[in-house]
Nucleic acid binder design. Sequence first.
DNA 1: CATATCTCAGATATACTGATATTT
DNA 2: CAAATATCAGTATATCTGAGATAT
Lengths: 177, 177
Amino acid sequence: MARPIPFDPVESFVEDWAERGLGAELSMAATASIMRAQRVLLDRNAATLRRFGLTFPRYEALVLLFFQPGNAVPMNRLSDWLLVHPTSVTNTVDRLEDDGFVRRVPHPTDRRALVVELTDSGRELAGEVLRALAGERFAIEGLSDSELRTLVRLLGKVRRGAGEFVEEAPAAVGSRR
Amino acid sequence: MARPIPFDPVESFVEDWAERGLGAELSMAATASIMRAQRVLLDRNAATLRRFGLTFPRYEALVLLFFQPGNAVPMNRLSDWLLVHPTSVTNTVDRLEDDGFVRRVPHPTDRRALVVELTDSGRELAGEVLRALAGERFAIEGLSDSELRTLVRLLGKVRRGAGEFVEEAPAAVGSRR
DNA sequence: CATATCTCAGATATACTGATATTT
DNA sequence: CAAATATCAGTATATCTGAGATAT
């Protein structure tokens, strides 16, 4: 494991940035914090993913399918929701299919499209990986439940502000498609 | 740009996760939030990085050097601080050096080691990219200053808890080495 | 006919493993 | 001699661009 930095890099960056009067310090601090936190958590959880033979992109695809009703999603939704290029989805799904964790099935109404769905073994794998990561609390330590709730709420605002998702239409209850 | 997801994926995941009673819901929600926020912000800021001919790893290396006293860091510190493999640092620095943004100089006391330092053109580039990103507030929207401060503080706890950094020794004031 | 969906071929970037030369 | 530092060769993965086949 990498040696820790002997000071908080984000704090240090932002002090310097603010001294130069370049503006948007808080946005800069928030972005840097998110980027660094992602990197560290990925690093700390990488060994667990490896034990299951998964890279992070493959893990993300599996998890998205795992939590989807019917464990199935059209290819183009995978691309939109994972924010990766369509050819990357083709590649990722190819490899997951080679390992027997997903399969492509025809789209019920659009003959151009394909739906990716988890196989039994893919569902099992996703569950195992998630349990293993949860057992280590995803390498999150030192925050109270209340702090975690606040963190999740604020990151929700960041994600919504950046256009990751839009609220569900309030009318159609239960329709998530 | 990708079509937005019609619901909040993190909220949806966590509800499902909690129903199954698998534990560590809040850690799972926080981790998923961080991962997704990183992905979206990267996506939203990618066009700006591209305008300057930078990929994200190269941008990260430049920014680290930009905010470092003397704009110089030993190779092995770059590896530790960016959480990437030493051979990846060699590769990244090779390319930045090809473009004239950094140069390798001998370490003053350790003849095995090399120090990477920004060139004038590298310092200029880093400043321009940061100003451009700041002009768009790094794609962060919809949070008050107070919320941003809270977010930064909580992500600082996450990063510290995951071992990204350790506090500066309280004795040696001003010594950041 | 314009658009959407998916795939392929080819190119580039990233990052790992394992090995090596040099220095501490 | 053991450990640290940086690099190289080779490989795997991921991602993009541009083109093309099929369907809407």
